[in-house]
Structure formats: C-alpha cells, structure tokens
C-alpha cells in the first residue's frame, strides 16, 4: 500500500500567511461569540421593560461615557491604521490614549452602577444595571487586553508573528465601543 519516492517540496500549513488567516478567523469567531450576550441583553431589555426609559436615569453621565468611548474608539481606529508602520513609540502613545480614555469610561460606568437613581427592583432598573455592569466588565477585559498589547509592543516590538495579535487588541476595543453605543441607544434613548 505504501511506497517510497523522492521527496517533493510540500507547502507547510504553519506558513506565516496561513497563521495570520487562522488568527484573523479565530478573532472573528471570538468577537461573534462575544456579541451573543449583547444580543440576548438587548432582547431582554425589551422583554422586561419594553421601550420604557426611567426619568431617574442619569442621562448626562450616559452621554459623557458615550462621547469618551467614541473618542477612545477613534484613537483605537487610528492606531489600527498605523500598526503596519511598526513605529513602537507612536503605537505606544495610541495605546496610552486609548487606555486612559477607556479607563475614564469604565470608571464612569462603575459610577453609574454604584450611584444610580433607578429602582433596582423595577424591570427597567434591573436591565439597566445588568447591562451597565456587563459592559463595565467588557471594558475591564478590553483594558487588560489593551495593556497586554501595549506591553508586547513596548517590550518585544512588532514583528510578523505578533503584529496581528497586538493590533487585534485595538479591534477588540472598537468592538466594545460599538457594543456600548448600541446599549446606550437601547438603554438611554429608545
């Protein structure tokens, strides 16, 4: 059944471009899976409280968080555009700005959670607090991811092996920004 012949050259499935495609594909699947809880929570909000918005909700802080998140998302997007240049100090600045803005947004979201004016045993209140808490959790995870990207960029520098994974920390943050904005519309406006 088997015979031996001279070895031809075969393509290796650990080649960099295939590894990159695997990383991209895996990251896309990860984001898709992380979007599922968001979809469930949007659904839950309308099941529990229809489109009711409490008059006690802190609209100003909600809008400010959204603005800060938009700013951090724009910086992350700019960073993503510049990853390929592999400029270590420039990328480090982008990381810092995104993280500081993200941390401000996370602290404000935790403030909303702690000093809320909504009734926690009401259906709007329970969905409001749950969704805000879940997104604050996403933000903390996103900040840890950004910090890991910043550390790798600063300590190791970008190379073919880690360029995608470092850049994907910005992509993940942009996903969190979008999730927050959808939830902002969902919780505060509609």
């Amino acid at each position: 059944m088997s015979e031996m012949q001279n070895a031809p050259t075969l393509q290796n499935n650990d080649l960099p471009d295939l590894k990159l495609r695997a990383s991209r594909g895996g990251f896309t699947l990860l984001v898709a899976s992380q979007a599922v809880p968001i979809i469930v929570l949007i659904n839950l909000r309308y099941v529990m409280a229809a489109s009711y918005v409490s008059s006690h909700v802190d609209q100003l802080t909600g809008a400010l968080i959204s603005l800060v998140m938009i700013a951090s998302g724009l910086v992350a997007w700019l960073a993503l555009m510049n990853v390929k240049q592999r400029n270590r100090s420039q990328l480090n600045r982008y990381f810092w700005i995104t993280m500081v803005l993200g941390a401000i947004a996370a602290v404000m979201a935790l403030y909303q959670l702690w000093f809320h004016g909504v009734n926690s045993v009401g259906h709007y209140g329970e969905t409001y607090l749950t969704i805000t808490g879940v997104l604050a959790g996403y933000m903390v995870i996103g900040l840890v991811a950004l910090y890991s990207g910043k550390s790798r960029n600063w300590r190791v520098g970008l190379n073919d092996d880690n360029e995608f994974s470092v850049g994907s920390t910005f992509k993940y943050w942009i996903f969190i920004v979008l999730a927050w904005l959808i939830m902002y519309l969902d919780l505060y406006l509609f």
Partner: peptide, 11 residues
C-alpha cells in the same frame, strides 16, 4: 503523500 527522512511515503 507524506515526506519522510528516507523520501516520500505514498499512502
């Protein structure tokens, strides 16, 4: 086709 040390094994 599986390359090996002694050449290629065709299975």
């Amino acid at each position: 086709v599986i390359p090996g040390e002694g050449g290629v094994e065709i299975v």
